[in-house]
Design a binder for these strands. Structure first.
Lengths: 195, 195, 195, 195
DNA sequence: AATGAATGAGAATTCATTCAT
DNA sequence: AATGAATGAATTCTCATTCAT
């Protein structure tokens, strides 16, 4: 599908990126060894430098690839706020599910981007920003209670998303949709009974 | 007994532990340098080995110290479930505030234990366990709604706690009690309006 | 015969030689990179080995080319001694000027041959030899004072030639003829006043 | 004499400097290997970094040491111009002899400073400057002919000095004083006979 | 209780060179 | 006549750790 006639070199580069994602995910930036990255794709070390200037460069290329996918994803998610207001929970839940799926689609990359890179926090902030903006919109139109502390809620939401992403990536213990549903439920309705 | 009259050696050891916590917190285990740890307390490298077998040992001693404080703390928090049932939110909120305070009391150590060590996840699981047990209890007595997914809620709660702990440690942007209140509010009542 | 219609391959070889002269001149043998030599003529590294066995080979080809030009030049300069004896200073000065001109005609090559190669000293010795022989001849016929230490004078003359060649190559600060004249003047008449 | 109670470390550092001077002199900066420098004094590579930040640092320390000796030497030589004017040739010759001796006293260092470092030219310029100033002075008082091109003469003088220094360093073929005398003679009186 | 001096093991990176096409 | 892809062999430098004092 996305492998339409890659030249040998391009293929090697992709293989290196994948191998690097795995190595970085497993050991973190500094403990990741170029020797491991290359030997996993049956290359020698000098070959690495045919494709990347140095260790930092391949790392940044991974992060940058992640950003290039994440940002549009987030942009699209903003749209939620522009849709008709019925079934808001339903919509957010679907959006959440999509995010989980996106992160789960390349676990190594996600792990590197969120947990091994200095940009991880930047990515979180982008998402918090997005949630805050969505929450604010719905608060204005009365779907979200006016007493909610938007910033705390947005950050808390992303904290949960983050945690369950981590779970999904590390252990496949639940199916994603169910998890999205349960997390949304908790978040929307809170935990208390009567009131 | 382990009184305040520390011998010179014991004092040096304490200073090393503190310096190490700082260094590990700032750079992570692998990037932390023994040379930095010792020079921050005006010692030479060989002196380090008078007190600790190796780098791993001082790290584990830090983690172990953290565990020794955290576990009793958590045990005590369990007690919440055994108290009279009025004012549950209030109680949980106070517990949360205490946790924040505990973590904030030694930010370097907390950072290392939660974010730089492999045991970080273990500590989180202990806390999730605790929350789940508390939630379960309150669900049984009807204070928490029966439709709540306990495990997800507990894990979500700790995810938020985790996130805001991180915020508190890194930036002192809010006072802890307010944050505890706002996070509790979000979590207890959810975000939606009507209900 | 080795006419101006160069085949493509011969042309490429010449281009490589020129590029190499530049690179060797700028960085010296060991710091010169084949990658730079080839990329300056828009070739890839393997192409280099189509024309030269290795780095050493292209270097020696440059030196050898220089020698092939220098030796006849020196031979011809010997002729000075065989000419009528009037206007000796004038003749030597003209010879000097020619040498300067020769060296300046391919600065990169000259720089490499004299200052970057082990054969540089050999070239200097050849020239010292030549000057000594010329001086000796003129000493015998009484044009050069009998108290002159021929070897030292010859070596000193070449030392100056060498230095000013270096100047000419690196900075075009003076016109060559003037320099030749001033150097000759210094050398012929010494520096003292009276006499 | 200059080895009054060096601590072991200081001694090792001196040994490394000497070994480095030798290695740099023989192979030039880039081809010099730290492995050779250390193994010549029976140390392992990491020990090198106990004493010098890197290869560049030890090199600069050598050059800087050379400069610290050369500059005062040159300053003192300036004094020649301030002395009574009889026996000028004699004085310059003695100064020359001293310079030769100075350079010969640490051949490796001299070779490195003059021929392997980028500062070599700077050192030459300082000396040319000095000679020009001396020549100018004597020209003004009539000891040096007014038709002399001071700059060319000064540069030529240093060129000879340079050359014979090189000879002295590489081969001990003549005794220094004789060489100084012969070079001075050539330079002062020129080469021509009658006039 | 502490240090001066030294090292073993390993990591990234560079570069001339080759192979297959 | 030329290139895409790859590598062997070095080399600098870092760091935890040890030894002798």
């Amino acid at each position: 599908m996305n492998s339409n006639k890659l030249s040998k070199g391009e293929l090697t580069k992709q293989r290196l990126l994948q191998s690097a994602a795995k190595e970085f995910a497993e050991r973190g930036y500094h403990e990741a060894k170029i020797s491991t990255i290359v030997s996993n794709v049956n290359l020698t070390q000098p070959s690495f430098y045919l494709y990347f200037k140095n260790k930092e460069a391949i790392f940044q290329e991974l992060i940058s690839h992640f950003r290039n996918q994440l940002i549009p994803f987030v942009e699209r998610t903003y749209e939620i706020a522009k849709l008709p207001h019925d079934e808001v929970p339903q919509r957010i839940q679907v959006g959440l599910s999509h995010l989980f799926q996106f992160f789960a689609s390349d676990p190594n990359l996600t792990k590197v981007a969120f947990y091994q890179s200095e940009q991880g926090e930047e990515f979180r902030l982008v998402m918090i920003e997005m949630m805050a903006s969505i929450f604010k919109h719905y608060q204005e139109v009365g779907l979200i209670r006016s007493s909610l502390f938007i910033e705390v809620a947005a950050e808390g939401f992303i904290a949960m998303l983050d945690r369950f992403t981590y779970r999904i990536i590390l252990t496949n213990e639940r199916d994603i949709d169910t998890l999205a549903k349960q997390m949304s439920d908790t978040f929307f309705y809170g935990i208390l009974a009567e009131r």
